[in-house]
């Protein structure tokens, strides 16, 4: 408290920022912004309890969960590439995409289990079927999808059971897009302001990001002659991801701020450069069939997609940690309702 004015010598030991004053001035917190950045709107006035967050921030470990979002997206889109390549007779592309999907989903499942407080109880996820819980639906989805990707990859590598392999490839391609986009619902279905508010566009951003990651994997490891679809997927995915992400931020108003500050800002800026650059390189690699170009494009696309997931993850956590993003939009909502 600043209540040190009880001393005889007048106000002493006042510690600014520790007051809990009443009304609109209460709980203002100053945050340092990134270099040279100007706030688009002046900081809103709001009250809080000593600047403490209203929400409990997610307990998820960034590497596990952002990594899971990334690998899930990569796997889902890779299953599309696999099915397309399988159907159009591009064996190298099909092999890479099938192995990529199976590998990515296995690692992402591992990350998911590793993040649990009680990993041994993972199967409890399947004790109910609960459409109100995106994590429950995701668990069911993955328990169908993961075996399909593994069967598809195994059949391809073994060169036997072709019919089973084709069926599994097709099945994985049907579930793949859902695997890539449901993770957006997973984040949005929380009270975390900057995740929840983006629920309309985030699935599209994740779809685009998954496509560019899968295309990147293919570009980096498949000969140019078979990589045509991957090149097109890279460009389309990058456009979808970047376009919808801009749209999302524009619609979110002040809740887009956490994307523009600190670590999320760095990550998202890197994602932008890498994804746009990767897509450009991918297009170029189609014309000048140089292996180096395609590999560079692939690496850029994959790391761009990863940076986007980590950026979105951290921005959400930041928005939960600052009471401003909880209080101000809710106040505005109340005022709007009061007319």
């Amino acid at each position: 408290m600043s209540g040190s004015d009880v001393t005889r010598e007048g106000v002493q030991g006042a510690r600014p920022g520790r007051d809990a004053p009443t009304g609109a001035r209460a709980g203002r917190r100053r945050r340092r912004r990134g270099r040279g950045e100007q706030p688009m709107v002046p900081d809103a006035q709001f009250s809080s309890y000593y600047g403490k967050p209203v929400l409990n921030k997610p307990t998820w470990k960034p590497l596990d969960i952002a990594g899971y979002l990334y690998l899930g997206g990569l796997a889902g889109a890779a299953s599309l590439l696999a099915a397309g390549a399988h159907a159009t007779g591009r064996p190298d592309l099909a092999r890479v995409a099938k192995l990529g999907a199976a590998g990515a989903i296995t690692v992402s499942l591992g990350a998911l289990v590793h993040d649990l407080g009680r990993p041994a109880r993972f199967v409890n996820m399947l004790r109910v079927f609960k459409p109100t819980s995106p994590m429950n639906m995701g668990s069911w989805l993955l328990s169908g999808y993961a075996p399909l990707t593994m069967a598809a990859a195994a059949a391809d590598v073994a060169g036997r059971y072709r019919l089973v392999g084709a069926g599994a490839t097709a099945g994985a391609a049907v579930l793949g897009p859902a695997v890539a986009t449901y993770t957006a619902v997973l984040l949005s279905d929380t009270a975390v302001p900057s995740w929840h508010e983006g629920y309309r566009e985030l699935p599209f951003v994740f779809a685009g990001s998954g496509a560019s990651a899968a295309a990147g994997l293919a570009l980096a490891s498949v000969p140019a002659a078979q990589a045509g679809p991957a090149r097109r997927m890279a460009v389309l995915g990058a456009a979808l991801e970047m376009g919808l992400f801009q749209l999302m931020k524009r619609r979110m108003g002040m809740l887009a701020e956490p994307f523009e500050r600190g670590r999320p800002h760095t990550l998202l800026r890197a994602a932008e450069v890498l994804t746009a650059g990767g897509a450009a390189l991918a297009a170029l690699s189609g014309r000048r069939r140089e292996r180096g170009l395609a590999v560079a494009a692939g690496v850029a696309l994959m790391s761009g997609s990863a940076a986007l997931r980590f950026g979105v993850f951290h921005a959400g956590v930041d928005s939960a940690e600052d009471p401003k993003y909880t209080v101000v939009p809710q106040r505005e909502r109340l005022e709007a309702r009061a007319g």
């Binding site: 590439l81 779809a207 685009g208």
Partner: peptide
Amino acid sequence: LPAMWKHAAMAAVSLAALGVAS
């Protein structure tokens, strides 16, 4: 949540379409 599932479904369909377009 119903709106979220709807948007995710539309995004999944878009992704599938993107795959076909590739």
